[in-house]
């Protein structure tokens, strides 16, 4: 499950997602935002992540949708008044602004779903460790403890039920108290054992000198090329943004959207940036499919033969 965009060096993936988040927050233009939203959604589908997308969608739509509703209710700027609601003017601009903000939030959410899938904890920690080794070590240790503690907590819950300490029964007060007792047992046990963890760290020379970092990721030529492409495209977009491209003005009145040469360059740069992983993912998909087809045809002709015949006779 490590093909396509997931196989790139963590720094490439991080640059991509950092760029997407930055652009989602900087570029205030429906064309850009919708492009980004679609690109990430397609990337997720290509990576086979449609299910988490669907599962989170109702919550995200609710969060983002509420922004679209709240903005016109509370913001009354704008020159096109559509109607009055509870004596408050509802303007076209406010509705459009709310919708734009909704798209921004949706984009942020979806970028994070894709981020969670592509930049696994390992990769994040690898990058994090480069910037802040001690904090990263601390976080890694906590990450290692979480599944261990969950298992312990399960055992504790099972056993303490024998002596009547049970979150499942009794009134709210008792249940909350029992829950905390369970956590206290976990805490005592774990802190006791952690002394041994500290000993084993010390026994292996922790704290003697500056730690080095072992990496399982290698920055290959493809990664360097990708970094360069993403950086160049990203800078084009940022340059364009500083020039005033990639944003529309809604307040105080909507300005007609113009699409000149500068805007086009900026947008093309943005598309290249957003779509690069899609190209990687799609190419890999296509390669696998074609190689699979070749294998079936050449290596197992005898097996496929009768199968084809039977299907034909049907």
């Amino acid at each position: 499950m490590n093909g396509g965009f997931r196989s790139v060096h963590p720094s490439v993936a991080l640059l991509y997602y950092a760029g997407l988040l930055l652009f989602a927050m900087l570029l205030f233009h429906p064309l850009y935002l919708l492009t980004e939203l679609t690109a990430v959604a397609i990337l997720l589908l290509l990576q086979g992540q449609g299910r988490p997308l669907l599962r989170g969608l109702p919550f995200y739509l609710l969060m983002a949708g509420s922004v679209a509703v709240l903005n016109p209710l509370f913001s009354h700027r704008g020159s096109h008044i559509l109607f009055y609601f509870l004596d408050q003017p509802i303007t076209l601009e406010a509705i459009l602004y709310g919708l734009m903000m909704m798209v921004v939030l949706l984009t942020l959410f979806i970028v994070f779903i894709s981020y969670n899938y592509t930049v696994t904890t390992d990769k994040f920690m690898y990058l994090f460790a480069a910037a802040a080794p001690k904090s990263a070590l601390l976080t890694l240790m906590a990450i290692r403890f979480v599944p261990l503690f969950q298992r312990r907590l399960h055992q504790i819950t099972l056993i303490q039920r024998i002596r009547g300490i049970d979150v499942g029964t009794g009134n709210l007060r008792k249940r909350m108290r029992d829950g905390m007792t369970l956590l206290k047992v976990l805490l005592t046990w774990s802190l006791e054992e952690a002394l041994q963890t500290a000993d084993s760290m010390k026994a292996r020379g922790f704290g003697l000198r500056k730690r080095s970092a072992y990496a399982i990721y290698k920055l290959d030529r493809r990664d360097v090329a990708l970094l360069a492409i993403l950086a160049v495209c990203g800078l084009i977009v940022l340059g364009g943004w500083l020039q005033g491209y990639g944003k529309i003005e809604i307040y105080p009145r909507m300005k007609p959207v113009q699409f000149g040469g500068g805007e086009a360059t900026c947008f093309i740069g943005f598309c290249l940036f957003a779509l690069t992983p899609l190209w990687l993912e799609g190419r890999e998909k296509w390669l696998w499919r074609s190689s699979q087809r070749n294998v079936y045809l050449s290596a197992t002709p005898i097996k496929t033969g009768p199968h084809l015949m039977s299907s034909r006779s049907r």
Binding site: K134, L137, L138, M141, A142, I143, F145, V146, F149, Q150, L153, T157, V167, G168, L172, R175, M176, G179, L182, L183, L186, L187, S190, L191, A194, L195, T197, A198, D199, M201, K202, F206, G207
Partner: peptide, 25 residues
């Protein structure tokens, strides 16, 4: 010190899993 680090990690992890017993509430 390794002990400080471990202590902080354990407390963070306990705080992080502390939602589990109260999943029903």
């Amino acid at each position: 010190e390794s002990r400080e680090l471990v202590l902080l990690a354990v407390l963070s992890a306990v705080a992080a899993v502390s939602r589990v017993p109260f999943a029903a509430l």
